[in-house]
Design a binder for these strands. Structure first.
Length: 483
RNA sequence: GGCGCUAUCGUCUAGGGGACUAGGACGGGGCCCUCUCAAGGCCUAAACACGGGUUCGAAUCCCGUUAGCGCUACCA
């Protein structure tokens, strides 16, 4: 066996099975693999584990691609499909047989099931009793020649298996607890543990980073590596993600697919940042980070051993933070499709008023936690007609004639002078003084007239971004409505 | 049942023998700012699962208990 130099570039892979959508747990596993690769100048590979034909679909494969692409977790080299490597898997099984590390087993699934139940009823741990390993060579040959169906099993040695896990340090399994596990089915297709090892060797994967639900597969896989004479990769087992109730994250917990969050108006940078913090810490108080910062700060030392609970509240907060700090160049293309989908404007309008549009986004993003929040808030600046919120009317237009009087005085004051925020503000504050009321008595009814809502950005910022025509038009409409 | 993994505020975490009166963040409560809502600033409640060791000294090291989770297929 050759000893590789320490300078070998790390090769990592994310290996989902295409049996659903890209789950946030999977996304986080992918992220850590990706961060490791980027941080250490390595390579990030993608392998689709589609050997379970019954459950794998093209649709979910596409969903996985889309999810990873949306997140920006780009992979190097061609996507590997495990199902395409059947011949190599079989060759490796044969090699294991030839090397004496594995043997043929003629026990049927039904027989095994029966024995398993028996052991169960006696409250004993079931372990294959190796009866087929004791068959004579002649008998095996005869039964194979007769075409009797059989599987291939690894002959697990009694020695303990241990490895130095990147996140858990030393993990050890007593040899006596490792079963003679099946590596090739009677139909000639490989079992997971064989396919994984065979592919990881072929892909020259040096770091196997995956969920800790694979810890108990690891000793079996190590046995295969050794029997195949391959160098062991470094293993890293990441903790799971749980829902708010502490159970494994599932559909019951609401959105669990990355695509769900995309549609909920999250941005990938925030999603990634949030996911990274679920199971990893850069140390100290660091929280809001860009991709570049995460790559820079990534270290296996910060990897957590404990399962983390997915907290949607913090995700939202994180998204709000990212919405506020990313550049307008980055924000705009994320919001525009949503604005268009909501029917507020078309592409041309947005392009024609590019600068104005960007100022609007800049104004709205500070009080938004999702893209959808921005779209909702943007309505008054685009729509021809606005709806008046009942509570807003009840509260600030309580007395219609009084409200009408204030609004028309407001309109006159605004229309009289130049349209800049300083002039507008002084006009309205003067009006308040003249009428002997607090400024809020002017601002709030005006806010309702302009937006139909009680909540909006600052009144002068709003007047400026709406522009004279639209603002005055809104006032006319409101005054007419109150008549 | 067996094997394995894990255990700091409700949640995410800092912490790697003395710097701990255990720090930060989300969420909660309060105050400030203020034309509303956010954002921001300040303050506040809130945790080392339990029991033994080791040590002059333990959130930190070891052992046990308990609890949670995972695996225990001719699934991946």
């Amino acid at each position: 066996m050759t000893v590789s130099s320490a300078a070998t570039t790390p090769r990592l892979r994310f290996a989902p099975s295409p049996t659903g959508y890209l789950h946030v747990g999977g996304a986080r596993t992918a992220l850590f693999n990706w961060l490791y690769a980027k941080h250490f100048g390595g390579v990030f590979l993608l392998r689709i584990e589609d050997t379970d034909k019954a459950r794998s679909t093209d649709e979910s494969e596409r969903a996985i691609f889309n999810g990873l692409e949306w997140l920006g977790l780009n992979w190097d080299e061609e996507v590997v499909h495990q199902g395409a490597n059947l011949e190599r898997h079989q060759r490796d099984a044969q090699a294991l047989l030839d090397a004496g590390a594995a043997y043929r087993c003629f026990c049927t699934a039904a027989e095994l099931d029966e024995r398993r139940k028996e052991a169960d009823s006696r409250k004993e741990a079931f372990k294959y009793d190796r009866r087929c390993d004791r068959l004579s060579a002649d008998e095996v040959e005869r039964r194979v020649a007769a075409g009797e169906p059989h599987v291939i099993r690894m002959r697990a040695p009694d020695t303990d298996v241990e490895w130095n896990d990147l996140v858990h340090d030393r993990i050890a399994f007593p040899g006596k607890d490792i079963d003679d596990f099946v590596i090739l089915r009677s139909d000639g297709t490989p079992i997971y543990n064989l396919a994984v090892v065979s592919d990881d060797i072929a892909m020259r994967v040096t770091v196997v980073m995956r969920g800790d639900d694979h810890i108990s597969n690891t000793p079996k896989q190590i046995l295969i590596y050794r029997a195949l004479g391959a160098e062991l990769p470094t293993f890293a087992h990441l903790p799971m993600i749980h829902g708010l109730d502490g159970k494994k994250l599932s559909k019951r917990h609401g959105a669990t697919a990355v695509g769900d969050y995309q549609h909920l108006g999250l941005i990938p940078g925030a999603m990634l940042n949030f996911l990274a913090l679920l199971g990893w810490s850069p140390g100290g108080d660091r929280e809001v980070m860009t991709m570049e910062e995460m790559i820079e700060l990534f270290s296996v030392d910060g990897l957590q051993r404990k399962a983390a609970i997915f907290d949607p509240k913090k995700l939202e907060w994180m998204n709000g933070q990212h919405l506020s700090v990313i550049s307008l160049e980055e924000l705009e293309p994320r919001v525009t499709p949503a604005i268009i989908a909501a029917g507020l404007a078309d592409v041309k309008t947005l392009e024609d008023r590019r600068e104005w549009y960007r100022s609007l986004l800049d104004l709205l993003r500070v009080r938004a936690r999702t893209i959808d929040d921005i779209v909702r808030q943007a309505i008054p600046y685009f729509a021809d007609q606005i709806e008046y919120d009942a509570d807003a009317v009840a509260k600030y237009w309580k007395d219609p004639s009084e409200a009408r009087s204030i609004l028309s005085a407001t309109k006159d004051a605004l229309a009289a002078g130049p349209w800049d925020s300083i002039s507008l503000e002084s006009a309205l504050r003067t009006l308040a003084d003249t009428r002997g009321v607090a400024a809020g008595k002017i601002f709030q009814p005006l806010r309702v007239a302009l937006t139909g809502l009680t909540v909006s950005p600052g009144i002068f910022e709003m007047l400026m971004i709406m522009g004279r025509d639209l603002a005055l038009h809104r006032l006319d409409t409101a005054i007419a409505k109150l008549a």
